[in-house]
Structures are given as C-alpha cells and as structure tokens.
Design a binder for these strands. Sequence first.
DNA 1: TTTAATGTAGTACAAATGTTCTATTCACTG
DNA 2: CAGTGAATAGAACATTTGTACTACATTAAA
Lengths: 223, 223
Amino acid sequence: MNYSNPSKQLSIKQNRILRFVENFINTNAYPPTVRDIQFGCEISSTSVVDYNLRILTQKGHIRRSPDVSRGIGLAGNKEGFPRNMIPLLGFVAAGEPLTLPSSEGLTKEDAYDQVELPTAMLSGIRLRGTTDLYALRVRGHSMIDALVDDGDLVVIQPTTSVNDGEMAVAWLREENEATLKRIYNEGSVIRLQPANVQMAPLFVSPENLEIQGRVVAVLRTIV
Amino acid sequence: MNYSNPSKQLSIKQNRILRFVENFINTNAYPPTVRDIQFGCEISSTSVVDYNLRILTQKGHIRRSPDVSRGIGLAGNKEGFPRNMIPLLGFVAAGEPLTLPSSEGLTKEDAYDQVELPTAMLSGIRLRGTTDLYALRVRGHSMIDALVDDGDLVVIQPTTSVNDGEMAVAWLREENEATLKRIYNEGSVIRLQPANVQMAPLFVSPENLEIQGRVVAVLRTIV
DNA sequence: TTTAATGTAGTACAAATGTTCTATTCACTG
DNA sequence: CAGTGAATAGAACATTTGTACTACATTAAA
C-alpha cells in the first residue's frame, strides 16, 4: 500500500484496475461494470472497487457518470475512445543524429508526443511483425528522393536488417547522415535505391551502413 | 412503414435509432440503453425499441450483447468505436478520367470503400474548410513528381479553385490526363509546380486546366 | 374478405448494476 | 501504546436496465 500518497502515483491495485478498464473497453466497445472490474481484478468486494475508482477519478485517470450503468470512461483519450497511438520520438534530418528508442524498448514516457494511425494501416503493418512502432517527423528536403517531404511523419519498425527492396531508415557513418532508401545487398556493396525510380542509386560498403529500422508508412498533411 | 422489406433498407424509425446510437456513442463514450433510445427517439415503449434493435441486428447494422446493460455496439466500425471515416471514391492515374463525387455531394453509398484518417490529421484539415473530404487511390508512378507513389492514398477537399501554391488535383484537357501539382496563377498562364522542388514546372493556359480539388493529405503504407 | 406479417403500445418482471452502510484490518504517527 | 487515516470486506438496498408477455393497429398478400 502507498499510504498518504497525494501524488498521481497509483497503487498496484489502482494500476491493475486502470489497465483492466482500458483492455475491457478495447475488447468490448463498452465500459466495464463495477462487478466486471471486481471479478477481472480478483477484488473481494464492490466497495473496494468503488473506493479505488473514486481515487482514480480524483487523480484524473478516469471519468465517472453517477448512477449510470457502465458510466466509467478513460480520461486520457480524446472523447474517451481507444485510438491507435504510437510514440513520436522526435525528428529525422540528413545531417543530424537519428532519434532512436532507448535500450529498454519503447515506452510512452520516452516519447516526444503520441500520434494516431488509421486502423487498417496499423493492421497491415502488424501482419509483418510485432515489434514496437514509432514515428519520426522529417525535417528538411533531404528525404525527397524517398518521396518524403519536409514535415512528413514516417512510421518506423525497429530492425537492424531488412530484406532486399525494403525501405530502411539508416545511418551513413562516413557521410555522418541519416537516409531513407530501399536497400539491396549486392555482395561487396550495398545499393541504396531512392524510392523515386527516376533517381540514381548510391553504392556504399556494408561497414558504412547502420540500419535502424524499416519504414512502414508515411503520413503527410499538406498546408 | 416498409412492409415485406427483406433488404437492408431501413425504415425511418430504424434510421433514426441508428443515428441516435452513433451520436450517443460519440458524445458519451459509452453506448445508450434501450430507455436512452426510447427517450431520445420519442418512442412510446421499450418494446418498440427492442423490436427495432432486433431488426437492426438482423440487418447487420448493430451488435447486441444479451442481458448486458448498454450491450449495443455499431457493426460498421471495427470494434464498434466511432472512427474518422471518409469515402474512398476510386482511383487516380495520369491517363484516366478522374473519379469525382456525384453532383448530389458525397454519400456513403457512392463510395468504393471507406478509409480512416487520424484524428489530428482530420482536425488540421477541417480548420481550412468544412466541405466533404474524399480519398482517391493512386495508380502508377505518374504522380511521383508530387511525391506521391503508386498505391498511395490522397485525401481531397473538393474545390474548383485554389490559392497560389496549394496542391491541387486537376484535369488537363488537351493532354487528357489527371495531375497533382502546386498551382500558381501567372496572369496569362498557369504554372504547375511539382512538389519535388528539384523538378521543372509546366506552364498551361487557364482554359486547359480544370481544378477538381485541393490535396490535403497523403497516406502511404509501404510493402 | 380473410389471413398473415409487420409494427406499436403498455405493463410487469427479473436481472444487472451502482451505491451505501457497518465492521475490520493495516500502517503510520505522536 | 493509542489514535488516525487508508484500505479492505461483506451485506444490503435502491436504481437502472433488458426482456417477456399480452393486446392492439396497420398494411400486404392470398
């Protein structure tokens, strides 16, 4: 128990309840009842659930509608709906170090922001792997050969190797720059092929290239 | 009343109930009860609501969880949550006629499909106007100078004129082709500027150009 | 005209659900 | 050690909510 804790830090039981509510809403498209939470979190009585829900409300994690069945809502998401959010870690530009996930893996706390992906886009990406996704905002026109413009959002699936023809976000050690290119392993050299097929490829030695992730989507809002 | 109607066509009352359920979920982040629907749709008894809900379930518009409070879900959206859907009207390719909304304006029935947009993207676009949005899928590499690849989704805001510098989807009458370009009115000619700033512009006469809409977003999933 | 199908209407009941009350336990503080 | 606040626990009650039943009205089909 965390006695006399006026902060927003939650007890183990409160965290468990919050996760249960989020998962329940994702699974069922409606919120749980107090008894759903009681059974799902193995709590002995409805008044313990009610007591913890009151604290979660005070701490701004959930909203409740009094005397309404299933009147429990998440406070974190706009309008209370679960959305397909991934972390926006920062920026990518040619001459700047790549923003990478920490070694502990991606957490919401590491992110500069959160961005939402369409459900079909996320489903399509997830068919190809279960690693965490993250997003980077493009700075500058240096990625234009990748058909990526200044301000675009690129969605990255972390990996240190890609299959031939896949588009990667990679660091060029000698040039000291980030790049987005389709990667072809041609024995002694690596061919970096721009997505714009009208542009000439680059050839680099394998030691010069450090692949950070696979580019799986691009989102562009045009001003 | 629509007697002996085995199709998915709905009665006026059923349409009203379906709209009410959608609006209620949008507003409250949880589904309505039978009595919420009764009061909201000015129906005299809970059994009329229950009867119509059963028909809406049979016709595939909603899902119900029996003996569960607020066990009503929308069937149209994945997992039953409201999403930011716009119609996908068809395709755009250089040498093919543009797929355009019908003169009655956009309706869900006209669409080839529906696609989802992220909430922030939609909010950003809607700051610039309230016209209906639609999407077109790009076929071929002819839009590559617009930094748009084969298979990309472009989001269009219908308009017959754009401000200088805005990207438009337009029909070139003499060339008989669709194009995506930034548009600059230079007096006697129109300059069509590719989004790829490394490429040369085109100049056409104003009579040759028919603007269909403003391109407001691009979404690309990379295989 | 009769029958059948569809839709409406009210009421009642059973189950689901939220909240309250009382008692107890635990951990911290003076 | 006693007091206090936090948290747990069980039971009960009140309200909310879904569904069933019966009866009637309207429309379409035979």
